[in-house]
Design a protein around this nucleic acid. Structure first.
Lengths: 199, 199
DNA sequence: CTAGGGTGGGTAAACACTCACCAACCGTCA
DNA sequence: TGACGGTTGGTGAGTGTTTACCCACCCTAG
């Protein structure tokens, strides 16, 4: 890992654990094991560091989504695994995403970057999941009158909010709790709750 | 409006529009029309100002939720109105809630406050909505095998995330778009999509 | 010898917070 | 009525600290 990547990793670590306010140039340099001046050999300014963290240091939810293949595996199982992954992903990335709201300048810069990158490239998680559900629908594994976009929004939205609440309250996400949550959410969205519904 | 309330309103305004990073004591004082020293006549320190903003300056989603009465009105209509209100509420409060993540100190202080206030008092939106749905279920207006908690999490979660995405992208929430969203989400959660399903 | 990547030790500005002071209002008392 | 003193809520001008950022310099590989 080069110096540049060490700096970005340190910045991401601090933002996750201490919050944006503590992610000062001095703290980042110390955590990365370099001097403050070194930051400026690799980045224009502090804003660029944060934008790079957002671009390069967030784990990939889209990666899992593009692996979803209609018709393969168990639909319910696929969706439950997706919810578990999504909650973990959101819980991980939330403290960093939230810091974008710390400054209007950061927010504006990040919006512009997303616009430029998002033009013809990867689509949003919502669109990817809706696409998958639509394909399953065409295969007859999802009710014909269902609304794939609404289903995607409900599942990802609930994952997002549950991750937010967990991060907020500081309680760790247990594997069991996550599995229960995933089963209940997927069961409700697919329309038929299995008979052994848990708490 | 007393000085104290003017200060809180100014702080909330700045956090909403400029972000936490710009919400300095100097800026708050200037926006409120007082000197910096005046802030410290009314508040212990800056942290207290932000905690009070969170307590007193956020609009009330719980208020709408407690007005929901099982058996009255149209179930679908009630839920759609709730979704519209929830998206607006979350979009309003997001920039302020997000700033809690700016500092571990703020986050810890806010957690403790929530714990103390939440001990025997008002419950969370999720619990209130699940309670309402359970009551409707007992009245036969919601399918007997449905999971009220999962339904509440899906509806509020999707509202939360859609509000986040709108705030993030900077696009305003149109009344029509919100109504469509609410109809699709509620229709999917209740299990039967109306025949005239829109885009 | 040069160039890229590193550092110690700065700088000016911004930060949260405080101090001595003051004006206006209060009930009291003659 | 009106002088008196205390409390409340306000201020201008600071304080020391922390911030992002930079300069002069250095070390080493090619």
């Amino acid at each position: 890992m080069g110096t540049r990547e060490e700096i970005l990793a340190a910045a991401a670590r601090i933002m996750r654990t201490e919050g944006y306010a503590r992610a000062t140039t001095k703290e980042i340099a110390r955590a990365a094991g370099y001097s403050e001046a070194a930051l400026y050999k690799h980045f224009e300014d502090k804003t660029e560091i944060f934008l790079r963290v957002l671009d390069e240091q967030l784990p990939g939810l889209p990666a899992l989504l593009t692996r979803l293949e209609a018709g393969s595996g168990d639909l319910r199982g696929n969706l439950e695994e997706l919810v578990v992954t999504a909650v973990r992903f959101y819980a991980d990335s939330f403290p960093i995403s939230a810091s974008v709201f710390s400054s209007q300048r950061l927010l504006a810069a990040h919006r512009e970057r997303l616009h430029r990158l998002g033009g013809g490239g990867p689509r949003t998680p919502e669109e990817l999941l809706a696409g998958y559900l639509g394909a399953e629908q065409r295969l007859g594994r999802v009710a014909a009158d269902a609304d794939p976009t609404a289903m995607a929004r409900l599942l990802l939205g609930a994952s997002f909010q549950q991750a937010f609440l967990a991060t907020f309250s500081g309680e760790p996400l247990s594997a069991d709790g996550l599995a229960d949550l995933a089963r209940d959410l997927v069961g409700t969205v697919l329309g038929a709750t299995p008979s052994d519904g848990g708490g």
